[in-house]
Each structure stands twice: as structure tokens, then as C-alpha cells.
């Protein structure tokens, strides 16, 4: 496991992706800072609040990253898990080392989730830091109108990072499964990203509303519920259950596929 994380985080690609994610809150903050000189009353609620409280940069950045940039990087990591090893020719050597196939899948999945957590934390952390640097920071006014201190706000930020990470369980499991189907990592990465986009498109079609609660991306943006007082836990719970269900289904599929697969790469 340690070795798996070492391989993942010693790779330049991993750092480039994390850096790119960190740049997004920076871009948001700088853009707001420049434009707020001649401020108007328009723009989304969150963005309005940034100039009053820098901590909101993190929230805006997350909202921007969730639909595309996060799935993109998660798709790269999850899609690469098995197919990447197959492509390098290292899969056969890992398996004769020997690593049991179930154990390899598990380790790969946990490592991919570690990346999801790192990615989310990087966005939140970069957002908080740049926000604090460019804007005033003070007690945070929640969506429910209550006000909390900075300590409590930091806790909420962590909770949100946790929520977003949990939200990515389903997509990571899908990516892992797709990765067992092919020896071409780029294909698996692209397929995973496309699936996340399709899910979001379906989620935006009102005609399919019966389907919506079953889409793994349905609750992605509901992390805002953690900004109410008292905290609205129901979306957290529903989302976690849904993600675990996706994990169970695609984890089983991945195992079923990989356990009996001929490794010919």
C-alpha cells in the first residue's frame, strides 16, 4: 500500500494535476479581486460573498471544479489503475510477485481515493489561503443566516472536503472497473470522464427526473447543505449511501472481470 501511494505521488503527472486544481481558487480569487474594484450587484451568491469574506473562495472553487475538473483528474487516476499497469507491462510482474488480484484491486482503489481526498483538500486549502491573502476574513455568515467563528468555519471546510471526497467514491469505482476492461489507459480515462459528464447531463434533463436520485453525480453540489445551522445531514447520508451502492456494484464488477481475466499484456 505504501508502495502504491509512493508510485502514485512520485509521478509528475499527479503533481501537475494537483497543482492545476490549486490554481483554480487562485484564478477565482484574483479575478474577483480585480473586478470587484468596479463592483456591480450581479453574479452568483457565492461570488458576491467572496469580497466580504475570503473563506468563500474555497467554496466557489469547489463549485467550479466539481462538474468538470475534479472528474477529469479522478478519471485520469482511476482509469489508469489497472490498464496503466497493463500498458507498462508491470501488471504481470506484480501478479507473479505475487499480489493477489483482489488485493491489487483494493490497493488500487484506496490509492485512487487517497488522490480524491488530496485533490479536494488541495482545492479547499488553496482557496482558504488565497482568500485570506486577498480579502478580509472574519466570522462566516451561513446560508441559514447564522454566523459562526473561524474555528467552526475551518471544521465546516473539512466536512465539505470529506463530502466531496465521498461523492467521488462512485466515479472512482466506475473508473476502476473500466480500467480492468482494457490495456489502453487513455481509453479507460476518457471513458470514465465521459461517463461523469453523461451522468451530469442526464441529471439536468427534467424529463428524466425519476432517474435523477440514482445518478452518482446527483448530490455532487449539495455540499452546501453543510453550511446550514443546524447542519442538514440528510443529503450527506443519502449521498454516502448512493456512493456506497455504486462502489458495491462496480467493485463487484471489477473483481468479477479482473479475477478471471487472462493477463496477456
Amino acid at each position: 500500500m505504501g508502495s502504491e501511494l509512493a508510485v502514485l505521488f512520485r509521478r509528475r503527472r499527479t503533481w501537475v494535476m494537483l497543482l492545476a486544481l490549486a490554481l483554480i481558487p487562485v484564478l477565482v480569487a484574483v479575478a474577483v479581486r480585480i473586478s470587484s474594484a468596479g463592483s456591480s450587484g450581479r453574479g452568483p451568491a457565492f461570488i458576491e460573498q467572496i469580497s466580504q469574506n475570503g473563506l468563500f473562495v474555497a467554496l466557489v472553487a469547489l463549485t467550479i471544479c466539481i462538474p468538470l475538473f475534479l472528474p477529469l483528474t479522478v478519471g485520469v487516476v482511476a482509469g489508469d489503475t489497472i490498464s496503466g499497469e497493463a500498458n507498462l507491462g508491470t501488471l504481470r510482474y506484480l501478479l507473479v510477485s505475487p499480489v493477489g488480484r483482489a488485493r491489487l484491486l483494493l490497493v488500487k482503489f484506496v490509492a485512487a481515493m487517497a488522490f480524491c481526498l488530496a485533490a479536494t483538500v488541495v482545492i479547499v486549502l488553496a482557496g482558504v489561503l488565497i482568500g485570506a491573502a486577498l480579502f478580509p476574513v472574519g466570522p462566516v455568515t451561513l446560508l441559514s443566516g447564522d454566523t459562526i467563528g473561524s474555528g467552526e468555519a475551518a471544521l465546516r471546510a473539512l466536512l465539505i472536503a470529506g463530502y466531496v471526497t465521498v461523492s467521488l467514491l462512485g466515479l472512482t469505482a466506475i473508473g476502476l472497473f473500466i480500467s480492468t476492461l482494457t490495456d489502453i489507459p487513455v481509453g479507460a480515462m476518457a471513458a470514465t470522464v465521459v461517463i461523469s459528464i453523461v451522468s451530469q447531463v442526464l441529471d439536468s434533463l427534467p424529463q428524466l427526473s425519476a432517474l435523477h436520485p440514482w445518478l452518482f453525480s446527483h448530490y455532487w453540489l449539495d455540499f452546501a447543505d453543510l453550511l446550514r445551522q443546524p447542519i442538514e445531514w440528510s443529503s450527506f447520508g443519502t449521498n454516502t449511501l448512493l456512493q456506497l451502492a455504486y462502489l458495491a456494484v462496480f467493485g463487484t464488477l471489477a473483481y468479477g472481470r479482473f479475477a478471471s481475466k487472462d493477463v496477456l499484456s
Binding site: 508510485v7 512520485r10 509528475r12 507498462l88 507491462g89 508491470t90 504481470r92 510482474y93 507473479v96
Partner: peptide
Amino acid sequence: GALIEGPGFYPFL
């Protein structure tokens, strides 16, 4: 110990 159809390694390590 085995060498199977050529070596396979992580180029970035």
C-alpha cells in the same frame, strides 16, 4: 522468479 515477454517497469522511477 520470472522474466516474461520482456521487462516491464515504471519509466518514471
